[in-house]
């Protein structure tokens, strides 16, 4: 089936795209929403502008739409972007990286239903440790680019998601109930390389913003 991938540049949407491809679906385009609201419940925001470089590496067209990020109104911008993909690339459905968030999943389901599109959520309800291990097994190179929960701090920014990371985040799960794959918004990630990429991306520069337990890393990749 001809599909659009709702793409944030992070591990979940990228891995969802890989799974869709493994199931013989065709990804016709990526859709990214660039939200001005850094605290959006709906969209991932750190380093979102770098999805262009990721799309280039995947050799896929990108529909990038800006939104003010006001609650519920941002969904109108998402719907416009999906409509555009339907018209331009004749998509029959969308793929999302939703794992746990009923808030995100049900809103996207409603948009797809309205536009008469299929909605695929290949990671839905997946065990979060299993998800992290899958990324390693599938040779994902992903780093942390945002944190927003105690006791995570700026020392986690730039950290690779590897076995050591899984060990450390599992300890925080036990002690602080942190969702190990960040499904409660505890952290955000950025994919530098994976089997969908033609070539790995390299960080050319970065800036760090934040305080206490809320930090983001804006990277510039090539």
């Amino acid at each position: 089936m001809n599909l659009a991938l709702l793409f944030s540049g992070g591990k979940d949407s990228t891995y969802a795209g890989l799974l869709a491809k493994k199931h013989k679906h065709k990804i016709s385009c990526l859709i990214s929403i660039e939200s001005e609201n850094k605290d959006s419940f709906m969209f991932h925001t750190p380093s979102i502008s770098q999805t262009k470089a990721q799309a280039n590496s995947m050799n896929l067209p990108l529909i990038s739409v800006k939104t003010h990020g006001k609650k519920e109104l941002e969904l109108i911008d998402l719907e416009k972007a999906i409509k555009k993909a339907k018209k331009k690339y004749k998509i029959k459905g969308v793929i999302t990286g939703a794992v746990e968030s009923i808030y995100q999943a049900s809103r996207i389901q409603k948009i797809c239903d309205k536009l008469k599109l299929e909605c695929f959520n290949p990671l839905w309800q997946k065990d979060q440790i299993e998800l992290l291990n899958d990324l390693i097994e599938n040779k994902f190179e992903a780093i942390i680019i945002g944190v927003s929960a105690y006791p995570l701090d700026d020392s986690w920014l730039g950290r690779k998601i590897d076995k050591e990371f899984i060990k450390d985040i599992s300890k925080l799960k036990e002690k602080y109930k942190i969702n190990p794959a960040g499904e409660g918004g505890e952290f955000e990630s950025f994919v530098l390389n994976c089997p969908l990429f033609k070539k790995p991306l390299k960080i050319q520069g970065s800036n760090t913003y934040g305080e206490k337990n809320s930090w983001r890393l804006e990277v510039n990749v090539k």
Partner: peptide, 10 residues
């Protein structure tokens, strides 16, 4: 997948 895998996990 998303309707079957979570049941398999249970």
């Amino acid at each position: 997948m998303e309707f079957v895998k979570p049941i398999e996990d249970i």
